[in-house]
């Protein structure tokens, strides 16, 4: 239970990091990408009865295009970006996407069957749903692809250069605008993956974006914003903490735990648990 949700927070956090690294923007529409991915997947598999892998690819592609359009239409045209303005723009996009999702998919939560139809698996005395294995596997695959992309491809290296210093990267001939666009598209794609794999467990509805985004941001902050390795660990940690507090304290307050952790980290150590203190001193919070 904790691992499933934790994996989702980790993926959302990676999405936040990707855009943050290339632009310094926190994308408030990140949670909406997750919702769109999940809802699209429901339509493709349950209503159009496409095969799982094909529907998976189509849904990710769809949300990637949404992310691409978002960057082209709302972030790229802004000539004098101030933090306040960019925040409000991404909020506006999230309201818009939420409204569209509500009109297209309705207000109810949508059911989706699990990826594979086998029963629970016994594993060292614990029962595990096959969907959990899918979630862990896909998280591992995304993280591996992420590492390979950023360390071994030219585009990935260019994106990293932009995140370190955009002006210098541009002087080296890197098209920084293109990298920003790419980061939005990829981040949307990762968000969609998160939405797709969690939908069989939580049943997706249009209004879940804000809370998913907020908890994912909690994971990103706990792991140190911009640090994607940290995000994975932090996401899993928050997920497990949430499940435990649901069991031991009260399930009503379960949702608040991730947020309290987030506030605590922001107030006490905004660089996250993995940031080095010298590094943190150089950053602005």
């Amino acid at each position: 239970m904790g691992i499933q949700r934790g994996s989702i927070y980790a993926l959302v956090a990676i999405g936040f990091n990707m855009i943050y690294n290339s632009t310094g923007i926190i994308n408030f529409a990140q949670g909406e990408f997750v919702v769109l991915g999940g809802l699209m997947m429901v339509t493709l598999t349950m209503n159009l009865s496409l095969s799982m892998p094909f529907a998976f690819l189509l849904s990710v592609l769809f949300v990637t295009i949404v992310g691409f359009l978002m960057e082209r239409l709302t972030i790229n045209p802004v000539r004098e970006p101030t933090v306040l303005r960019l925040i409000i723009i991404t909020i506006a996009v999230s309201i818009l996407l939420k409204g569209l999702a509500m009109c297209i998919w309705g207000k109810g939560s949508l059911y989706m069957r699990q990826f594979t139809q086998t029963g629970p698996i016994e594993f060292f005395g614990a029962t595990i749903m096959p969907q959990t294995l899918w979630i862990i596997g896909i998280l591992a695959a995304v993280v591996s692809a992420y590492i390979l992309f950023f360390n071994f491809t030219l585009t990935g290296k260019c994106m990293r250069a932009c995140s370190i210093n955009r002006d210098s990267a541009r002087l080296c001939g890197i098209n920084d605008r293109l990298m920003v666009m790419l980061s939005f598209a990829l981040s949307a794609g990762i968000g969609a993956v998160a939405g797709i794999i969690i939908t069989p467990i939580i049943q997706m509805d249009y209004g879940r974006g804000a809370l998913l985004g907020l908890k994912g941001f909690g994971a990103a902050v706990l792991g140190g914003l911009g640090n994607s390795g940290g995000a994975v660990v932090a996401g899993l940690l928050i997920g497990i903490l949430e499940a435990m507090s649901g069991g031991y304290i009260s399930s009503h307050y379960m949702d608040a735990i991730a947020l309290i952790v987030m506030l605590f980290v922001l107030f006490v150590r905004p660089g996250g648990i993995f940031g080095k203190s010298e590094e943190i001193r150089l950053k602005e919070f």
């Binding site: 923007i25 926190i26 408030f28 933090v83 306040l84 925040i87 804000a210 809370l211 907020l214 941001f217 909690g218 902050v221 009503h252 307050y253 949702d255 608040a256 947020l259 309290i260 987030m262 506030l263 922001l266 107030f267 905004p270 602005e284 919070f285």
Partner: peptide, 20 residues
Amino acid sequence: LKGHYLAMATLGFASIVHIV
């Protein structure tokens, strides 16, 4: 905190109050 961090912190606070 500044900018995005402040926005997220206050959003988190609002969400906690709603949950409570």
